[in-house]
Nucleic acid binder design. Sequence first.
DNA 1: CTCATGTCAGAACGACTGAGATGG
DNA 2: CCCATCTCAGTCTTTCTGACATGA
Lengths: 146, 146
Amino acid sequence: MRVHGAPRRLRSLPSWLLNQAAAAASRATAAVFDAEGMHRSQFAVLAALDEFGPLSQAALSDRTGLDPSDVVRWVDELAGTGHVERARDPSDRRRNVISLTDSGRERLRDLDEKLERAQQELLAPLTAAQRDELTALLQGLLAIAD
Amino acid sequence: MRVHGAPRRLRSLPSWLLNQAAAAASRATAAVFDAEGMHRSQFAVLAALDEFGPLSQAALSDRTGLDPSDVVRWVDELAGTGHVERARDPSDRRRNVISLTDSGRERLRDLDEKLERAQQELLAPLTAAQRDELTALLQGLLAIAD
DNA sequence: CTCATGTCAGAACGACTGAGATGG
DNA sequence: CCCATCTCAGTCTTTCTGACATGA
């Protein structure tokens, strides 16, 4: 993508810059996920399960921001590849309890490393201090505390 | 969207933060474009024409980052609403010369105002200094000089 | 009855691909 | 002949909507 010659109106507009930067970020991480035969959203699901333990699909939707109907599909795939397990919650039989398998945990560690390298690549034009600052500002914008 | 309870792995990952922030930015500006019956990409086209004067569609694609085949459609619509004019370039008859009409220039000023308000809303959690810093960091990330 | 949860099919959208027509 | 430009049709992806079944 050519952005170097963009009009000032665009290149000084935060919403446009965020969209361009997100596109660059997607390109940077796509290679990782493609190589692993895995999808971004699946990584989000694995991350949520690793941090919070077994969760219902509704809780997974809340934690990841994924649409509930999409959680169905990603969990289907992750269950198919053995990275998570789906079980009925005995205490509330509407719910599925999704839990991480050892294989899922391994895959997550794999992805951590490779994603870290992708971040370095994406953020290459920035100094270490600037990277931290950008991260902090984005967290602030999204009202997320780190 | 619920991001407040996202796993640390996600909420400290710049590529994820950029995607979430871009989604928030799209939501903030969608209201403006919808109300004006106009699309983001049309704004980008108008902005490029206003800053650089009449351009071929290929040049518009370069300036805006839009796909050439999408430029066709947006210019179609903008010509239909009278905001731009399409003329054959006499010096190279493969090319269309797209130029902004007075009506297009007016619309652009309209959008400037309303988009500015949308930015304020989007960036509300940040101080003025932080907003400038975020803008500068994103420009740096995209290797854009302001 | 109501609400929450999970499931499914498909709509809507945006970004892109490939092929063809025209002309330099 | 090769390349640039524009156009069109259609794919691919992601996200979301609406309807439904099950169960609290």
